[in-house]
């Protein structure tokens, strides 16, 4: 857990001082990818609590989810289907669900 938080902070610092800015036209894709990343991490937390955590599953899920989310939104943009909102909805819902599950688990302990 400590490793996870430490690496999160380090990553944030590196990202902040890299001074990278996402162009406005890609910010949508990036935010969806970020949300997918969040979802994967919270899903992993839940899996750890459930003791069903699988390393390979987590890693592939993390990368494929972020990339797929961005790709789908990009496709949707080009087909003028607002998949952006769908992705937001789905990932947001899952994040909240996982969070509430984690809370349950913590209270039960």
């Amino acid at each position: 857990m400590i490793y996870a938080i430490a690496s999160l902070v380090i990553g944030a610092l590196v990202g902040y001082f890299c001074n990278i800015t996402i162009p406005v036209e890609y910010s949508k894709l990036f935010s969806v990818a970020l949300l997918a990343g969040f979802d994967a991490v919270f899903g992993a937390l839940k899996a750890i609590f459930l003791k069903t955590f699988d390393n390979l599953n987590f890693l592939t899920g993390f990368f494929s989810n972020t990339l797929l989310a961005a790709l789908l939104v990009y496709l949707g943009d080009n087909l003028s289907i607002d998949l952006y909102y769908v992705a937001l909805f789905v990932f947001g819902l899952r994040i909240f669900k996982n969070l509430s599950y984690l809370r349950h688990c913590l209270i039960k302990k």
């Binding site: 690496s7 944030a12 610092l13 590196v14 990202g15 902040y16 996402i22 990036f30 935010s31 991490v41």
Partner: peptide
């Protein structure tokens, strides 16, 4: 994830 958050 941290990197992405910061960039965003």
């Amino acid at each position: 994830l941290g990197f992405m958050i910061a960039v965003q």
